[in-house]
Design a protein around this nucleic acid. Sequence first.
RNA 1: GCCUCGGUGGCGGAAUUGGUAGACGCGCUGGAUUCAAAAUCCAGUUCUUUCGGGAGUGUGGGUUCGAUUCCCACCCGAGGUACCA
Length: 1011
Amino acid sequence: MSYRFREIEKKWQQYWAKNQTFKAENNSGKEKYYVLDMFPYPSGAGLHVGHPLGYIASDIYARYKRHKGFNVLHPQGYDSFGLPAEQYAIQTGQHPAITTEENINTYRRQLDRLGFSFDWSREVRTSDPRYYKWTQWVFIQLFNSWYNINSDKAEPIDDLVVRFKKEGSAGVNAACDEDTPTFSAPEWKQFSDKEKERLLLKYRLTYLADTEVNWCPALGTVLANDEIANGVSERGGHPVVRKKMTQWSMRITAYAQRLLDGLEKIDWPQPLKDAQSNWIGRSVGAEVEFRIQNSEFRIPVFTTRPDTIFGASFMTLAPEHGLVPEITTPVQKAEVEEYIEATARRSERDRLSGVDLITGAFTGAYAEHPFSKEPIPIWIGDYVLAGYGTGAVMSVPCGDQRDYDFAKHFNIPIPNIFKGVDISEEAFADKENTIITNSDFLNGLSYKEATKEVIAQLEKIGRGKGKINFRLRDAVFSRQRYWGEPFPVYYVDGMPKMIPEEHLPLVLPEVEKYLPTETGDPPLGNATTWAWDTGQSTVVSNKLMDHRKVFPLELNTMPGWAGSSQYFNRYMDPHSEEQIFSREAVNYWRQVDLYIGGIEHATGHLLYSRFWQKFMFDKGLVPVDEYAKKLINQGMILGTSAYIYEVIVGTIAVDYSAFIGKPLKDNSDIFISSDRIGLIGYEPNYLGFMETIQSKKIFDLIKNKISDLAEYYFNENGIEYQLGLKVLRRHVDVSLIKGENELDIKSISSNPNFREDIIFYLNDNGRFKVEREVEKMSKSKFNVVNPDAICEEYGADSLRMYEMFLGPLEQAKPWNTAGITGVHSFLKKLWRLYHSGPNAQFYVTEDSNGAGADHGERGEVFKTLHKTIKKVEEDIQNFSFNTSVSTFMICVNGLLAQKCTSRAILEPLAILISPYAPHIAEELWALLGHRESISTAPFPKFEAKYLVEDRKEYPISFNGKMRFTMELPLDMDKEEIEATVMAHEKTQRQLQGRIPKKVIVVPGKIVNIVG
RNA sequence: GCCUCGGUGGCGGAAUUGGUAGACGCGCUGGAUUCAAAAUCCAGUUCUUUCGGGAGUGUGGGUUCGAUUCCCACCCGAGGUACCA
């Protein structure tokens, strides 16, 4: 019988579903093991072969752990809130819930086809009210908490109120807003309720604040830093601008140190840990207070080099710094205001263009040096960021290149405080290799000593203290979108109130349209039934808002990372209605043992979820403060895409400055004049392409195309324009390319603006210039490979094994469908191994008695088997799945050559391979006479006795180069080996009469003759 | 710039503490089987060679009897991050 994979796979998938083979129990005598995948966002495009890579790996591991006797939790679900469904809703009016449901069904069908051992009874969907009820619940817990730095944990906000009543804010050491005032107990009591609320908001772990946010006008929403790449939105590539808005924020900064410390106790990949710790960005230094001369104002600065304080010859404030208007002298006022305006105008594009213009303005004010009492001029400059530290720096030009450049540019003195260091050309930033001088009491000290000393002195005179600063910012938690979790929040007199927990979930309302309202409110502003009736504790029509007990509900929704910050815990007890999850469940499963997912979430989901977990830990809801013990980042599977160059004739404003230094990659701007065509700007990597453009042939082609457009320059509204060509790199479907690189223009002219006279394609020798590149699979690049087609042609087991066989799990690898025939024919061979009877019938021999025989033919097959057991088990433990596939190939090739038919070999082999190719393994297992699924059969035990050898093929090397081999008994000692080797005629031929200087013999390993 | 990872045949990749470089698979070449094709099977496949051998893991050094592996310097590629004081 031949290997009928379609039949077999369908049969076992149905069997597993029907028997709930992979259902995990919350109480079990077995040891637990929790294997988690990052749950997918169900996009409309369905899965491509890159998606399941991590799922296959985790499935192999989960199945292996079941064979090893563990109670394995291997759940799956959907991160089903998100922008694409909403965008689709905007375009079509289709409710996102409907498209999401459809997409989930497609995903489920595709996932099922791959034979994963998921426990689907635990499925969660972030957009399901039964799930987001608990997302909202956690939000309320955050709102009701503050961070006590003294106890280093989150505590109930009610406790804080009690303290305020008793002692005021004195003695409270909280992670709170910068501008939080201090007050006494009597003052607290006198505050109005609203005033109290406003103050408490500065302490809560989630709070409302006017934050400068990344506003994306095209998407109509705020984006997190990790949703922006190169100044444009990650989705869609729309421009992003800074804008102030009232937003919910998460006080993740309170956890900065713990997030950093926690990295040390988790087994996560180093690059990922590095990305997180850079993102958190801890720097140790000091805060120094500078007093403004003739004024009450004091400006604290943060510095990592307090040792250089005597080198500070000026101060620089961010242009947005709050004190700038206060301290600027009348004489400088105009200049400063003009500069501030210019900075605000400075577009994102300029900032990205890498133009390092040194700009700034003098405020006319002077600060007093805390030690020397010398006057220090105060400047403003946009190289100082408002959002980091205190938004002000003490500028030490001799020790910091930016300060140095600024000082040079504005002719500010550059005092040298480094002994024997030349600073005539550049600043000296090396803190280790110098001695401080010209610095009063710091003279003669090293960086380390001086830092310690200066902090001590600052503290003594009350002008500063040692301080640790973090780059990490609080996370904005509001999104102006429809398809997300509604906040369980309503507003009374502008102050936020939480909906009582017993009335959760607050279900997302229906809206007429999914766009922002005409007044600029988020889409929820379109809902007509979106007000909270505090009397009836229910959502009511907005019209009732005149009633004194009915209040407006929050119009923002939560970001994508809200739902993904707790799904791993919810899986432990996914149907719990009374509580987020039961204590028993979370105490049993505790934490994820193995988490597999992409590194792209390094500073997003993987950081936020750690924060969320730590909060849950502080609240006593979870037993551990790191939720994933071990994490593996699977590499991307890349597709091969083809692209051509599309040339569009158009106009560009002649403003070359904007292009200087700008990387010209996908879209290049090209200019043309009467005799020249070239790139605007300069990009060395593009020289090759530039030459093509500049070649006479192409030049003539372009000129002919545009010959009727005689004017190369024209002027409009005072702006000079130049006739230009926009060259776009455009992806084309690989399947449209004929022959080598031939392409029919009509087949790719899907461009709605296509007009052959204004848009044309670069070609070369009559052929279109087609280039190929290996890159991330994406529908828009026409390079996706659908797993359904692969399953149809080769089967899921082949696909699973091939994906593993491609290369190391963590590495990016190009996909090449042609290669799958290798593993597919391997599976056919495996099948044949069990079907050696007449007419290829299933055939095993029961001669397994005396399995311990070490010699003869049987000994050989046992050796083959046990070598395989050893290697495969080691590979699984090292997540080196690619090498175990080749081990299986070697094993099956060996057993076929050995004509093995013995049950004692074939039965363990089926178990060994079942994590990788579960369908064929189940089928063989059943043919071997078993009635139960193979999934919990004990993993074969490796026995070293089968591998014992008594002879060894010794490599004989000369000066480290292997020249030939010699088979010798392993019990031969050094001297005997040397004598035997030296006596060999090949040795003598190699030596050609020379006498060897030395002979190295490593018994059991190698012989090296040094001559 | 900084941080991280990587660089091995035509391709994907293997080599566990330094010990036979190129396992396994794709592709390619030749052969068997077949009326023929598909499928399958067998042999070969780093380069070079005067067929003895010689060279070879990005480059140049070093340590060692011996280096893809360890050390130093550099080059190239990928990803992340960037006026962070």
